[in-house]
């Protein structure tokens, strides 16, 4: 069973890594966009495993993007370093926010994260134009790798791999026991010696750094940022919908959800350019009503019965 599983994972990895050699530009582009959402969905789920619901992905996504772009504009160094810088900035800012707000729980923390993205957007928009470009944002001279779609794909694939590995570490190490205890019963967690606040801050910083990393890569790939696009609530809600559809509290649930919803979105976008978000909404409602554990939950149920 274990060997079989390792084989499947190795085959998937090889197939994904070699994809640019036999795939066209359009498909490659579609896939790396889906991979970015996949990373966001997994990182959102990682925080959810500790019992904390975030609506703030867009905030950290945007911070990562702005930090990377601004460093790029001011220093013109290697875009990869700028991406790393964007991730670190998102991590640092989430550390401050986490220290200030992670005493809050449930809906109170969720509302703070929702407000966070909006606050960042307003701050960025109102900073001097020479820093952030104000409402117009910043357009870079060039996209990363001169827009080469293969290299871009490998960059995004690398970020996805980092996310998946971290997510598996979350599921298979002592972190798993800490965050599951916190999610299940904080009083028991404390009584077992778990420093809840410390763990939540660490988890929040790790997941925020990942979201900043994706945001930074996104802006380097498209070569532009602006407050309305990069802090769009879209980046908070779509990954959340993907994780819900695929099945929460696992690595592979968000992966499956991102593939299904990502491909469906791409198809629907062609079918009805303005109406496809309604279909997303419908899918989310139907999943929550009829498939609370998502596609993964359905698979588990079907395989257990046999």
């Amino acid at each position: 069973m274990k060997i079989w599983k390792a084989f499947v994972i190795a085959a998937l990895f090889l197939a994904a890594a070699s994809l640019p050699f036999y795939t066209g530009t359009y498909l490659l582009h579609t896939i790396y966009i889906i991979m970015m959402y996949m990373s966001l969905a997994i990182s959102w789920d990682m925080l959810l495993r500790a019992g904390q619901l975030s609506f703030g992905i867009a905030g950290l996504f945007g911070i990562g993007g702005y930090a990377a772009t601004m460093l790029q504009v001011f220093t013109n160094i290697n875009p990869l370093i700028c991406i790393l810088f964007g991730a670190i900035m998102a991590g640092l800012i989430s550390l401050l926010i986490g220290l200030a707000t992670l005493r809050l729980r449930g809906i109170y923390f969720a509302i703070i994260t929702l407000a966070m993205a909006e606050i960042f957007r307003v701050i960025i928009r109102n900073l001097p134009d020479t820093w952030t470009g104000g409402a117009m944002g910043i357009v870079l001279n060039n996209a990363i790798f001169n827009g080469d779609v293969k290299q871009t794909y490998w960059l995004v694939f690398g970020i996805l791999l980092i996310t998946i590995v971290l997510s598996e570490v979350f599921n298979k190490s002592r972190i798993h026991f800490a965050i599951t205890s916190i999610r299940n019963d904080e009083i028991v967690a404390m009584s077992s010696g778990i420093d809840i606040f410390k763990w939540l801050v660490v988890i929040f910083v790790i997941t925020s750094t990942l979201q900043g990393l994706v945001g930074a890569a996104y802006t380097e790939i498209y070569g532009s940022v602006n407050p309305d696009a990069n802090f769009s609530v879209h980046y908070s809600l779509l990954p959340l919908a993907m994780a819900l559809l695929g099945g929460i509290r696992s690595t592979w649930g968000p992966v499956i959800g991102a593939i299904v919803l990502g491909l469906a979105g791409e198809y629907l976008k062609l079918l009805m350019p303005y109406g496809y978000l309604i279909i997303y909404g419908l899918i989310i409602i139907l999943v929550i009503l009829f498939l609370p554990d998502g596609i993964m939950g359905l698979i588990k149920k079907l395989t257990q019965k046999k």
Partner: peptide, 14 residues
């Protein structure tokens, strides 16, 4: 969401 053994492990771990 933890098994019997895992419940007991939490104290030893943390």
């Amino acid at each position: 969401d933890l098994t019997l053994l895992e419940n007991v492990m939490t104290g030893a771990l943390f």
